[in-house]
């Protein structure tokens, strides 16, 4: 069973639909036991970091998410929340990764939010098996995670390069929306569903 973390974030239905198209059995849940015993955990989200963290606290999910041992995938805001701190509401996050989430600088002349299809560059990762580096994925976001040692794929937005995807142990994150990224996105989700990690 795949647990899709329910914390009242937006656009969860697209993730559930995408999993269903892949024939995967998923359940939207905020129950600790279900999340910790799930074979996979998907942590989606469209929304705002500060209110999302407040909702996770309220549902007692902060510690639960940190304890997940099975493959875990944060999508968009979900990936951002896996880091240490966000400028969006100046809030402390889950600290699964030690990065600071920043607002795209307004003085670089590009449009914010970063909306649309952009290409990802990567070397190799089981998450991207069967996909060519340079493939396009769909983004909608105003905040970004800078490049770090946990970056496994990056995207250029004009002259700024940011983390498209990150990984450490069983924790994976995608800033883009695989559930909205056509065939490429479906392959990434499929790869996530079949990857094995040791911890």
């Amino acid at each position: 069973m795949i647990a899709v973390v329910d914390y009242n974030a937006g656009n969860i239905r697209s993730v559930l639909c995408a999993l269903e198209r892949l024939g995967a059995k998923a359940e939207l849940t905020c129950e600790r036991d279900k999340i910790l015993s799930a074979d996979r955990v998907i942590f989606p989200g469209v929304g705002q970091a500060e209110s999302a963290m407040a909702e996770l606290e309220k549902r007692g999910l902060v510690e639960t998410l940190r304890q997940v041992k099975r493959p875990f995938l944060g999508i968009c805001l979900g990936m951002q929340l896996m880091n240490a701190f966000s400028e969006e509401g100046d809030v402390n996050l889950l600290s699964l990764f030690d990065n600071r989430v920043s607002l795209f600088p307004s003085d670089l002349g590009f449009k914010i939010p970063h909306v649309g299809w952009n290409s990802i560059s990567f070397n190799t990762s089981p998450l991207f098996e069967g996909i060519e580096s340079g493939s396009y994925v769909y983004y909608v976001h105003s905040y970004y995670v800078p490049l770090s040692s946990s970056t496994i794929a990056s995207t250029d937005y004009d002259n700024l390069t940011f983390t498209a995807s990150m990984a450490k142990d069983n924790f994976f994150g995608c800033q883009f929306h695989p559930e909205k990224s056509g065939e490429v996105g479906e392959r990434i989700l499929k790869n996530f569903l079949s990857l094995e990690v040791e911890k």
């Binding site: 198209r21 929306h177 056509g182």
Partner: peptide, 8 residues
Amino acid sequence: IADRINIP
């Protein structure tokens, strides 16, 4: 539509 298509 959401069930069927994989683009925004």
